[in-house]
Design a binder for these strands. Structure first.
Length: 307
DNA sequence: AAGGCGTGGGA
DNA sequence: TTCCCAAGCCT
């Protein structure tokens, strides 16, 4: 059980320093420029799910140049989205972004919805992304709880080095309690706290000397104690199905034409795992099987699987 | 509600 | 080298 202290009596004490710091240190990222628009914000949010900014930048630019509106993406096969995704990782995101673009085109007249509930209903949009788009693209007042913000709040308010593994109700409550009343200030606060976590209050080696609220930080006040909760989840990769899926999909991304089974067989020498990985890609709609053991990136959207 | 799902860079 | 981590989502 992680100790959760009550929100500060005056959360406003934190607002000004963090927002002022953001004014001085915010990165000039393309999705923060006005010309990005809601679609640019949404594309960036999909790409940034579990992927660093530096790797997103070039792909984002190419993506927006090729598909400046949701309808442009929706007009192409999902496999083209998977190909353009390149090596960003988690390619199901590309499929979901394509599906979201289709839903926006069909259901919302081609405009990214402003409403949190409608955003949340889009494929690949969860609690965080819905709040982020509503806040960053439309200036609304939402608690935006990503890994950066959770870490900042864990330290500054709760006095813990790291937040819990899964987002808790207590964290959501705290985030809501800290949200500035004013809508534009709340939107600014959301971006500022994320940036603070990304640039200063980092996971490994926070630079407290540069932190605008170090004087108010509960973790610092407690002597920066080591994490004492349950171990943080780590993911293995080498030798897993995920690695095999990655190798298979890399071949198909590079190939314009369909690829025969024999070529796919060269990427991994263990046949059972190789077959399982390929089946998984097909089940996910990332790969389309053709006749006689040929495969390609999908030209059509498969019926959504459930279970 | 744990666990699956990619990839690469920095410490 | 190995390990950790990066603006989560879905089932």
């Amino acid at each position: 059980m992680t100790a959760m202290t009550a929100p500060p009596e005056t959360p406003a004490l934190l607002h000004d320093p963090v927002i002022d710091w953001f004014g001085d240190h915010a990165r000039d990222l393309p999705w923060r420029r006005p010309e990005a628009g809601p679609w640019g914000v949404m594309v960036s949010e999909f790409m940034l799910q579990q992927t660093p900014v530096s790797r997103v930048l070039p792909v984002y630019e190419q993506w927006l140049a090729r598909w400046p509106r949701p309808a442009d993406l929706a007009a192409e096969p999902p496999g083209e989205a998977v190909r353009a995704w390149g090596r960003l990782g988690y390619p199901r995101r590309a499929l979901r972004l394509h599906a979201a673009a289709s839903a926006i085109t069909e259901l919302h007249g081609g405009e990214v919805p402003r409403d949190h509930a409608r955003l949340l209903a889009l494929p690949g949009v969860g609690e965080y992304t819905a709040a982020a788009v509503a806040s960053f693209a439309y200036g609304q007042r939402h608690a935006v709880l990503d890994t950066n913000v959770r870490r900042v709040f864990a330290r500054a308010v709760s006095g813990a080095q790291y937040p819990p593994n899964a987002t808790t109700a207590a964290e959501r409550k705290l985030a809501r309690a800290l949200l500035p009343e004013s809508e534009p200030v709340a939107a600014r606060w959301a971006a500022a706290t994320m940036e603070l976590g990304a640039l200063v209050c980092t996971a490994r080696t926070p630079e407290c000397a540069r932190c605008p609220i170090s004087a108010h930080c509960a973790w610092r006040a407690a002597g920066s104690p080591e994490h004492d909760g349950p171990p943080r989840r780590t993911q293995s990769y080498a030798g897993t199905d995920r690695q095999v899926r990655g190798k298979l999909l890399a071949v198909l991304r590079e190939a314009i034409d369909p690829v025969p089974q024999a070529v796919l067989d060269t990427v991994w020498d263990e046949p059972v795992q190789r077959a399982r990985a390929l089946d998984g890609l097909v089940a996910d709609g990332l790969v389309e099987p053709l006749a006689d053991g040929w495969y390609r990136l999908p030209l059509s959207t498969p019926a959504p699987a459930s279970g």
